[in-house]
Amino acid sequence: MAASRFDSPEASIAYMKEVAVKRSGFSNWLDVEPIKVWEGESELLLALRPDMTQHHGFAHGAIVGLMADNACAWAAASAVGDVVTGSYTISFLAPAIGTRLRSKGTVIKAGKRQVVVRAEVWAEDDGGASKLVACAQGTIVPKGQIEQKR
């Protein structure tokens, strides 16, 4: 398990709510809720709304992708600091049908130039049922490694 850059699990959640959600237009509009962002692991929750679905009524793939991407990036951020996504690959396994999405990210390896993370996205309903709907692997880049153009 990766060490955390935060002093406590509560501090990490407070930071992610303020920075990763409130300052990100898309995550803020979706109202993504960080549940855990600690020591190289993350868990996020998203209540699904009708405006997040595609024509069959499933959660849109872009929404499922955001949950995988954020789970990867937030797990990495908990270990190495401010990050951006370099790339991710997602496999959609089943239609995302339910009342909410839950994603979990786990750092596989944190290096100086990149962090490799895997994520799972689950669709859940109010009756307690859950189904794995996507899995992803991401390469996350610590912000200090990003070349800034002026």
Rank of each mutant, 00 (worst) to 15 (best):
S4M: 12
S8C: 12
S12K: 13
I13A: 01
A14M: 07
M16C: 13
K17E: 15
E18N: 09
G25W: 00
F26P: 05
S27H: 10
N28I: 03
D31E: 12
V32L: 03
E33F: 00
P34C: 04
P34M: 05
V37N: 13
S42Y: 06
L46C: 04
L48F: 01
D51G: 00
H55I: 13
H56S: 10
F58V: 10
F58E: 12
F58S: 13
H60N: 14
V64G: 03
G65I: 01
L66T: 11
L66H: 05
A68R: 00
C72R: 03
W74R: 09
A75K: 09
A75I: 04
A76D: 11
A77W: 08
A79I: 05
V83M: 10
V84P: 06
T85I: 08
G86E: 12
G86C: 09
Y88I: 06
I90H: 07
I90N: 12
S91G: 11
L93A: 10
P95G: 13
G98P: 02
T99C: 00
R100Y: 00
R100Q: 03
G105A: 07
G105Q: 07
I108M: 01
Q114M: 14
V115H: 10
V115P: 05
V117D: 08
R118C: 03
E120Y: 04
V121G: 04
A123C: 06
A123N: 05
A123H: 05
E124C: 03
D125W: 02
A129N: 15
S130C: 06
A134Q: 02
A134D: 02
C135W: 11
A136G: 06
Q137F: 02
G138L: 02
T139S: 15
V141P: 06
K143W: 06
K143F: 10
G144A: 08
K149V: 06
